[in-house]
Design a protein around this nucleic acid. Sequence first.
DNA 1: ACGTACGGGACTGCCCGTTATT
DNA 2: AATAACGGGCAGTCCCGTACGT
Lengths: 206, 206, 206, 206
Amino acid sequence: MAAQTKRQPDVTRQALLEAAFNEIHRNGFRAASLENILASAGVTKGALYHHFDNKQALGYAVVDEVVRPFVEENWRAAAEAPNMIDAAIELCRRLTRERSDMALSFGCPFNNLINEMSPVDEGFRTRLNQIVQEWRQGIVETTRRAQGRGQVRKDVDPEAVAAFVISSIEGCVGVGKATQSREFLEAGFRGLIDYLEHLRPEPHEH
Amino acid sequence: MAAQTKRQPDVTRQALLEAAFNEIHRNGFRAASLENILASAGVTKGALYHHFDNKQALGYAVVDEVVRPFVEENWRAAAEAPNMIDAAIELCRRLTRERSDMALSFGCPFNNLINEMSPVDEGFRTRLNQIVQEWRQGIVETTRRAQGRGQVRKDVDPEAVAAFVISSIEGCVGVGKATQSREFLEAGFRGLIDYLEHLRPEPHEH
Amino acid sequence: MAAQTKRQPDVTRQALLEAAFNEIHRNGFRAASLENILASAGVTKGALYHHFDNKQALGYAVVDEVVRPFVEENWRAAAEAPNMIDAAIELCRRLTRERSDMALSFGCPFNNLINEMSPVDEGFRTRLNQIVQEWRQGIVETTRRAQGRGQVRKDVDPEAVAAFVISSIEGCVGVGKATQSREFLEAGFRGLIDYLEHLRPEPHEH
Amino acid sequence: MAAQTKRQPDVTRQALLEAAFNEIHRNGFRAASLENILASAGVTKGALYHHFDNKQALGYAVVDEVVRPFVEENWRAAAEAPNMIDAAIELCRRLTRERSDMALSFGCPFNNLINEMSPVDEGFRTRLNQIVQEWRQGIVETTRRAQGRGQVRKDVDPEAVAAFVISSIEGCVGVGKATQSREFLEAGFRGLIDYLEHLRPEPHEH
DNA sequence: ACGTACGGGACTGCCCGTTATT
DNA sequence: AATAACGGGCAGTCCCGTACGT
């Protein structure tokens, strides 16, 4: 089979998405420079304009095709684990360990986009909200199942758990950017872990 | 007492700060337009550059002189209340009631600035971090006092409480912007209230 | 007879010419968008550049193969009529009736191209001038014949008649675009008809 | 009296208008390059943006403040002359003599703008139409006065005269651009002069 | 203290044209 | 013959900042 030729539309498109994701992660969407993205992806204006109508469409595609899977893979594991609380706590610990440098420097790409674009671009907001809702729905269902299994107290409201867990995770990473301190991030996550532990039923309950 | 002339340096400066705060709240700092700020403040460029060196200096002044008091007045009440947990819960309820429209539309000015500017401007980050630290320190001390009074369980880490409470409040308002739904915001704050309640000592503990 | 395949070079070429003519009529040549032309013709860029060297060549072909017949068919009838003045007057009336909407909106394609392209592209000017000259020559000869038949006064200069008739027709349609009023167009053509009537010999002349 | 300093807003504005007028005259409005205009006026983007909101506003100002007086001064003399027909004929002769080079090369700025911009920009059309109407109104009134004085036949319709004279003048200059020949232009104007002569009453009429 | 004129840069959008590919 | 991927340039917009003038 012959070597690949120069034309690789999917590769080009993917390169643009990744380059855009990184540039947006670092600078936000509006301050993201197309020139930087092009240089980083190694393509030219023509290629960009061929694959995406404009900067906005590129941004939407980044949300749908990069940010969304990025968010999903984080909670998917926890949703499918035998014990939700254990998995969530494990996730918190992993996040503090693995990605704290990136998180402290540039924050969570998802949270950044929500904060920047939700109020000023309805298209962004709709797409970002969809991700929030999927995540929320995942936590709600997981919590219900866990309640059925007796792993979570039956008097807690799954909707409140979902909204609060999502918000506090993003909040920790967000505020952490200002402090630039691992201690603050870890303290925040300790608080979250404390909250999660408290969701377990009392030993004498069942 | 002589009639006031048209020149009112302090008034002008204050008008600029307020106009800048509003424009930044709506559009973020980098997308904030000086022209909009000037039009909204009713002055011209000459006045602006007389009072501030440049856009950055204006932004710093907004953080120091508008955002900081704005944040402080929110938690000051809770810090001085006889029972911290009761006061914090009351604060959560007030926030959902009073400012939810503005919060859902444009978010918290403090959180917005942290997310946008912390990674790209060290001067902003330092100033914003200072606000975070004051807030954190306030909660830590209040929590310690409450523990001394037996109003908060002694096994909780005040640092974790502080980091987590701050982060989750900002997180709720932030993520709420994407959902544009009061239900989500309320659910998040219900989760926070649940967490706060759990900080109280067990009835049979002391 | 075998089924037609999808490849139809002549059809494609003709579709491109028509689409280009319409786009140019609406927007002028330089502002005409190849993308619009392609979309309207239902083909892609490869087909265009297979049939024409570049945008300029496409424009030249539109002049030669679409605009030229378009202009010619208008005066051909008048040239071959038994009485030139009657025919010309009838033509004026027909133009005001039939095409006034299109003419008022977008003007005469021929006149538009003359005004836009003559000064900036010699190739266009040459081709457009050729059409002018054929038209002019047609009127000159028709006028001479009419003079021979005693249908036109012998003291008028056929060259002046030709240049003036062509110019005033195009002028009426051109200025009519600014007024967007059928009244203006009709008034102009009434003036032209008046001029044409005045070309007839006095009853007592011959 | 001290020498003029560098700040001369009116001079700058006027320089921009003149430079824009010339660039538009040569290239049309849409193909007119702001960079060329700036270079020719000797100012920078900032100055342009200060005096005019955008390219469109600059174009509108050119129409109102340059093209309009330009058109008006041409027919004003004829309107105020003791004999309108003599004056109009004299104007035709002067136009062929004086401005035929410019006219043959780039046409009449007024006619060019009508043909290019009327169909695609309502703001341009409105302004250009206003000029047409003023001109038309001027001819109508002049013709009525001339009819009162017995200098023009009473059976001609002043509205038709006005629309036709305006249209044929612009038409001659327009079509002349394609021919690039002074002969054609002169022949056209001979036709117009012939028409004007025919407006005079018959010697035996009054 | 403040208003107006102006300098100059950077970015996105858009477009024409070319080339690899079928 | 025709498609789709891609190259590369240019223009209008918009903005921040400076400096002249009152």
